[in-house]
Design a protein around this nucleic acid. Structure first.
Length: 542
RNA sequence: GCGCCCGUAGCUCAGUGGAUAGAGCGCUCGCCUCCGGAGCGAGAGGUCGCAAGUUCGAAUCUUGCCGGGCGCGCCA
């Protein structure tokens, strides 16, 4: 048996072909029905093809059931047509036991490797301005980008993680001025930065009061970047490259100038009012955009275009940028610019993270960077820990704003979902320790067998969920939706808990104990994999 | 005004064409001679913002409205 659900899908496709029915436009479902009396696997295949074939769905389902019975043989216990044309399949214990064997044989690789086709992905995320510490929004971006990277990599994609450092331009000058003002005990400049970290920078930079402002600014950026690297590493987020915006303005020609040449070669730029413009309206933007101001300075947009051109030239076949919600208005012009460079529409994905509100006792905290009253990544990790922070930031879809309940997040009890999942993992480890290494090795050595009494409902339900893992990961990857993995982890932990409650593992009849030990190992792997993809620890004991 | 995101249980949110819409928290009530009780459960609680439309079938797709968040610089 290869991957169990893939086998079923193959059998279903084959059965449709047997009947001379066209393959449906959308792949038929193979879902675990919520209702227990709807079988182990339900499919809507008959309803999908009935119309095109001009047939009654239930009639098609009946014929499909017969063909599946032939193709699946002893794997299929029964197939029943229900409702408007669903086909509910009950799989045999033998099928389940063989599926479990497949899971165990795959080991840590179970659930991964589904990339099709394999792509070379540049994943740019966080990219927070080095004018201040990383705050909660950046932390969510970090957790999301990192988890997405883990999922894509587990699928088999080549993932290169990058942090774009905005170490150039007016805000950096303002940072230098702010630090220098502080060092001179003067008021910060108009629109400058405040907060304790500015005082720290002023103290750390020797001669900050007297050095040229540009130099103070660069030294401050270096310190801030190093701090961001430490904070992110502590949050289990590592990058392959920290890309300097400043570097886009160095060399001859500079990457920015090179990008201008590329755009000019495509005939996309023009001069007006003394400025250089890009005709982004040709690609759906609502107005054209300035690349070089009438003063001769380049805009931030020019840097960004040069950066994306540079990434293109490095040979990635997919660029993903994860941006904060406050930049969403920038999306159309970036897409337009990418196409103006000659890039393909589906080579660049811009993902927008919505905001996070921290909630404590029903009250929302404030996060204003300039005022210096923000909660930073380090503050959050100090408060609730890496695992809880990552869980609560990752458990929800990236395009919904979230309220993070700090009071719940810091609890060490099963009321806290991340604790509950980790506890289930640790508990399995404890059961396996109880069985002992010899007994465990013996159980895993097989051969797989169906115990005399057959499988119980709780065992089948847990195993069914473990078998779902590859599909879940594929969905999470394709939809850029790490939160699905969190949902999966919680459900799997709940199913294990129910199984554990109802079924004695260690000390059961030998062949039953063997099955349950194997199941426990598989459940532990599924949980460990899900947690790993979220960057959350899977403890052996707590 | 225009654009993007959101509107699902008291609260926070899953669920992007299928059957009787789910979870966590909160609330009420149960379970320790038993592999981890820092645990395990049960129950109450919902016009899926509103209205049309498409479909055999809509929380899900379309359109319009209402409500909330964000954005609309030769700033970054």
């Amino acid at each position: 048996m290869s991957e169990p659900l893939a086998d079923l899908r193959g059998a279903l496709d084959g059965a449709l072909a047997d009947l001379g029915l066209p393959a449906p436009k959308n792949p038929p479902s193979l879902e675990s029905p919520r209702q227990a009396d709807h079988g182990d696997v339900a499919t809507n295949a008959a309803m999908l093809v009935a119309k095109a074939a001009g047939r009654q769905p239930r009639e098609v389902a009946e014929e499909l059931a017969q063909r599946l019975a032939v193709r699946l043989g002893p794997a299929l216990e029964s197939a029943e047509v229900a409702g408007p044309g669903f086909l509910n399949l009950v799989l045999s214990d033998q099928w389940y036991v063989e599926a479990l064997q497949t899971v165990l044989a795959a080991g840590e690789a179970w659930g991964g490797g589904g990339a099709d086709p394999v792509r070379s992905v540049n994943l740019e995320f966080v990219s927070a301005n080095p004018t201040g510490p990383i705050h909660v929004g950046g932390t969510r971006n970090a957790a999301y980008g990192d988890a997405l990277g883990r999922i894509l990599a587990f699928q088999g994609h080549a993932v290169h993680r990058e942090f774009y450092v905005n170490d150039f331009g007016s805000q950096i000058r303002r940072l230098g001025e702010s630090v220098q003002a502080r060092a001179r005990a003067e008021e910060p400049p108009e629109g400058g930065y405040q907060g304790a970290y500015i005082a720290d920078l002023a103290a750390q930079i020797e001669g900050a009061a007297d050095l040229p402002t540009d130099q103070v600014a660069q030294l401050a950026v270096e310190i801030m970047v190093a701090q961001a690297q430490r904070s992110l590493a502590r949050f289990h987020v590592l990058f392959d490259r920290w890309f300097s915006e400043r570097s886009l303005h160095e060399g001859a020609p500079t990457p920015v100038e090179h990008a201008f040449e590329v755009l000019d070669g495509q005939g996309r730029t023009f001069r007006e009012d003394g400025a250089l413009w890009l005709r982004t309206t040709e690609f759906g933007d609502d107005k054209d955009r300035v690349l070089e101001r009438s003063t001769g300075e380049h805009t931030y947009f020019a840097s960004d275009i040069a950066y994306h051109q540079e990434k293109r030239e490095r040979g990635f076949d997919l660029l993903i940028d994860v941006w904060g919600a406050d930049h969403h208005g920038y999306v159309p012009r970036m897409h337009a610019a990418y196409r103006a460079l000659g890039g393909g529409e589906d080579e660049l994905e811009l993902l927008i993270m919505q905001f996070v509100h921290l909630v404590e006792g029903g009250e929302r905290g404030k996060m204003s960077k300039r005022a210096g009253e923000f909660v930073t990544l380090d503050d959050l990790v100090d408060d609730i820990g890496v695992d809880a922070a990552r869980w609560f930031l990752l458990a929800r879809s990236h395009d919904t704003t979230i309220d993070l309940d700090l009071e719940l997040a810091r609890r060490d009890s099963s009321e806290n979902p991340v604790f509950y999942v980790q506890y289930a993992h640790a508990r399995i480890a404890s059961v396996l320790r109880k069985a002992g290494p010899e007994r465990l090795a013996q159980a895993l050595a097989g051969p797989p067998g169906v115990p005399a009494g057959g499988l119980h409902a709780g065992e089948r339900a847990l195993l069914r969920r473990i078998i779902d893992l590859p599909d879940e990961i594929r969905e999470a990857a394709d939809r850029r939706a790490p939160h699905r993995i969190a949902t999966y982890a919680l459900e799997t932990a709940q199913l294990f808990s129910a199984f554990y409650r109802d079924s004695q593992v260690v000390g059961a009849e030998p062949e039953v104990e063997t099955l349950r030990l194997r199941l426990a190992v598989a459940a532990q792997r599924a949980l460990a994999t899900a947690l790993e993809l979220l960057g959350i620890s899977a403890p052996e004991e707590m």
